[in-house]
Amino acid sequence: MELPVIWANYISIALFLALSFGVWSIPKSAVVPEKYDGQSWRDLRVWATGLIVFQIVLYAYFT
């Protein structure tokens, strides 16, 4: 049985959600050096989350 093409979008969105869980499982100390403590914009996990949300929107729109 062949899955409809729309499933490719669902799978992509699921992969991006799984990636965001992986990103937030990385401890902050591995991403932000101590000297930047208190500068939340330097937390690359936040950058990654922004990118992932954008990708999810793209794959939800272009179906």
């Binding site: 992969l15 991006f16 990636l19 990103v23 690359l44 990654a48 990118l51």
Partner: peptide, 10 residues
């Protein structure tokens, strides 16, 4: 994008 995020963080 997923590969670039993994490259950046790991």
């Amino acid at each position: 994008i997923p590969a670039m995020i993994i490259a950046a963080l790991i």
